[in-house]
């Protein structure tokens, strides 16, 4: 089976013990995203304080890829400023579009490089990106809100 190449140990660990999976009571922005092809859903709360991402928390149902990917993403993003958060997000998005050719920079993406194998399975890329796209949306909503 090629399964091991897709489901790395790190992914299964995050799936079984997801990080930050409990919605915080306060937030700058809350978003809800759905993967229309499979019905997976996520709600994500993001808090922005002095330009830094102070909190990312979430709730949702989904496959191991979407759950692990979201968990890894929250670990990565908390403590970053919006600019570097968006640059990490950009790197992850291109890794997902790499059709199995890229490995991903571990210095930037940390645990998220374990998801590199997903890029070989077009049907699963949306799963891996669900939490990240919710995060991107939450960032842009937070920024607009703070500008007001």
């Amino acid at each position: 089976m090629e399964l091991e190449s897709l489901y790395q140990e790190v992914i299964l660990d995050h799936y079984k013990h997801p990080a930050n999976k409990k919605l915080s009571p306060d937030y700058t922005a809350q978003v809800h995203h759905v993967n229309t092809s499979c019905g997976d859903e996520i709600t994500l709360n993001l808090s922005l304080k002095d330009g830094l991402i102070s909190q990312v928390s979430w709730e949702g149902v989904g496959c191991s890829i979407s759950q692990a990917s979201t968990s890894i993403m929250t670990d990565l993003m908390i403590g970053k400023n919006t600019e570097s958060a968006l640059s990490v997000l950009g790197e992850f998005t291109s890794l997902m579009q790499s059709k199995g050719l890229a490995k991903g920079d571990e210095l930037v993406l940390e645990d998220a490089v374990a998801l590199a194998g997903v890029s070989k399975f077009p049907a699963r890329i949306k799963c891996a990106l669900l939490g990240w796209m919710a995060f991107k949306d939450a960032i842009s909503q937070s920024v607009t809100q703070q500008e007001k």
Binding site: M1, L3, L6, G62, C63
Partner: peptide
Amino acid sequence: HPHDVGQA
């Protein structure tokens, strides 16, 4: 999850 079942 069904998606993971399908993959397996």
